[in-house]
């Protein structure tokens, strides 16, 4: 049931206009998520860049910008209430949130909503930082990255927690044994749509983690967003895979992984890393380890 380019619905669910930074992929990705789900959808938007952007690119479906940390709880109430009211059938319930709202402040709300088996789709657009407030580190910020709260100074150089430490939301959600979990990227909108369509067919909670490079926060040219997102996948920094009822499958295979150099070099947040051959080698080792470990977990 792969989505084909000529089958992408022409209908638009967002009005015109876009308040996002130049080169931001989030509106683009959200647009494709809505194309995958169609009109019969209610969107709960956790505070973040997308909630701000939606002040102008207004969705043509019911859309509710809630607080930063409570979107999964709000959608739980909607799920339950529509059931009691007899209006639940055929309605897609969608949460969209950033990595801060997902991995950090909204973590308990999300974990508990999926643990209860609420029927909704959760899409996290992960730009690895709090970009709506100007770029502070989050639980998904990679090791070494410079952010406004992990600056490069004389003593510490960027995010300096141990290299392996980072909230892996895909695996965390998978550990909840929910029916559908997927990792995808804004560079592959057809894959994103396919993941969303699969998630919509699931009865119960589903989680989609969508890697979304941020040119503003990462220090890239606006036209480089998609190149960066693609390189993230091609270097194995991001692995596109799904876990459907426990069966793990890579959804976009990378036969020959590229070295991370080019991916990191295009982001000024890693400038101090790419200048330092030792740090760069350590980053490559970390990506290799993470990749191999994840591949070893795939279903036969």
């Amino acid at each position: 049931m792969a989505v084909k380019l000529n089958e992408v619905p022409a209908v638009e669910h967002l009005s015109g206009g876009n308040l996002a930074c130049a080169g931001c992929p989030e509106t683009l990705a959200f647009r494709h998520v809505l194309k995958a789900l169609g009109d019969n959808t209610i969107v709960i938007n956790a505070t973040g860049c997308l909630a701000v952007v939606m002040q102008m690119a207004v969705p043509k479906v019911p859309h509710f910008h809630v607080l930063l940390e409570n979107a999964p709880a709000v959608i739980s109430g909607i799920d339950g209430a529509l059931e009691t009211l007899g209006r639940r059938e055929g309605v897609n319930l969608l949460v969209v949130a950033g990595d801060g709202g997902t991995a950090d402040i909204g973590f308990s709300s999300l974990s508990s909503a999926v643990e209860r088996g609420q029927d909704f789709i959760y899409v996290c657009f992960d730009n690895e930082c709090y970009m709506n407030t100007g770029g502070q580190r989050s639980g998904t910020t990679p090791h070494g990255a410079r952010t406004s709260t992990t600056p490069v100074g004389r003593v510490t150089k960027g995010e300096d927690r141990a290299p392996a430490l980072r909230k892996d939301m895909v695996e965390i959600l998978a550990a909840h044994r929910i029916p559908y979990v997927a990792s995808t990227s804004v560079a592959y909108p057809l894959d994103l749509m396919e993941r969303v369509q699969k998630a919509a067919q699931v009865r119960g909670p589903s989680y989609i983690h969508c890697h979304s490079p941020c040119p503003t926060g990462w220090g890239m040219k606006a036209e480089e967003t998609i190149t960066a997102a693609r390189l993230a996948v091609e270097t194995g920094s991001v692995v596109m895979y799904e876990i459907e009822n426990g069966v793990r499958r890579v959804t976009r295979k990378v036969p020959r992984r590229k070295p991370v150099d080019a991916y990191l070099a295009m982001q000024s947040r890693f400038k101090h890393v790419t200048k330092d051959p030792e740090a760069l080698a350590a980053m490559q080792t970390q990506v290799d380890l993470g990749y191999e470990e994840l591949m070893a977990r795939m279903s036969p």
């Binding site: 809630v66 109430g77 909607i78 339950g80 009211l85 508990s112």
Partner: peptide, 19 residues
Amino acid sequence: VESEHSALSACCGGSAVGA
């Protein structure tokens, strides 16, 4: 729910669809 914050948030969800 797992917290009071979520309790009232879920009620907001219910109320948002008219329940």
